[in-house]
């Protein structure tokens, strides 16, 4: 369908869906980065309060207020994490759509799939693969952040606190290729000019 006009083919059917999904990936990853920054700031404050408490720098009357502060910062971090979980949820939906599309094509066109690519060169399965890999990275990241959140306020050794913070900031499970994969997706679907 509309082979004669491939540049505009991205406005209907599967191509439209894939193109919109690519834009969603971009937006979700941006949102994730923003949340990550906010979460890091909160996590830093938690660690700061916690270490000061355990070093006994706060005089006893100030202790209860410090405790309340800690509680509040932890709550803030929890809120951020909930939002991040929502982002991953949406990512999961995108990946599911993408694999549904592969199934649909297999059903409609047989095992060989689509004879002409949706956009420039990617097979439909490649979109699915890109989505799956991104989802996997962010899913693992979320799991790690949950673990960090659980332990952060109960850790008194500064080295371990530092490791928790680096885990949050540097996102060890998001490989450097993730960003490239997104850019490739955007290029292929025409969001970025070739």
């Amino acid at each position: 369908w509309d082979e004669g006009n491939r540049k505009c083919s991205a406005v209907t059917g599967s191509a439209r869906k894939v193109r919109d999904n690519a834009a969603d990936w971009h937006n979700l990853m941006l949102r994730w980065d923003k949340l990550n920054d906010a979460g890091f700031a909160a996590a830093g404050r938690v660690v700061d309060l916690r270490l000061r408490q355990s070093h006994g720098e706060a005089p006893p009357p100030a202790l209860s207020s410090a405790h309340a502060d800690l509680q509040q910062e932890c709550q803030e971090l929890l809120d951020v994490l909930d939002k991040m979980a929502a982002v991953v949820m949406k990512m999961r939906r995108l990946a599911a759509w993408q694999s549904g599309l592969v199934d649909l094509e297999r059903f409609q066109l047989g095992d060989e799939g689509r004879p002409v690519p949706l956009f420039h060169g990617w097979r439909t399965a490649q979109f699915e693969e890109a989505s799956r890999q991104l989802l996997e990275a962010y899913g693992r990241e979320l799991k790690l952040k949950r673990a960090v959140l659980q332990e952060l306020a109960h850790t008194a050794t500064s080295d371990l606190c530092m490791v928790y913070l680096s885990c949050w900031l540097h996102q060890p499970y998001t490989p450097p290729q993730a960003r490239l994969r997104l850019e490739a997706l955007l290029l292929e679907t025409g969001h970025r000019p070739l």
Binding site: K143, L144, A147, V148, Q150, E151, S158, D159, L160, M162, V163, L165, S166, C167, H170, Q171, P172, Y173
Partner: peptide
């Protein structure tokens, strides 16, 4: 941060559920 990571044995911490974490974080 690298120093802290090298001093912590992650398998003895609550992060032990993430076996490749040490390596991944070090890389990052």
């Amino acid at each position: 941060q690298l120093r802290a990571l090298s001093r912590v044995q992650l398998s003895n911490t609550p992060l032990s559920a993430f076996p490749d974490l040490q390596q991944c974080l070090h890389f990052k």
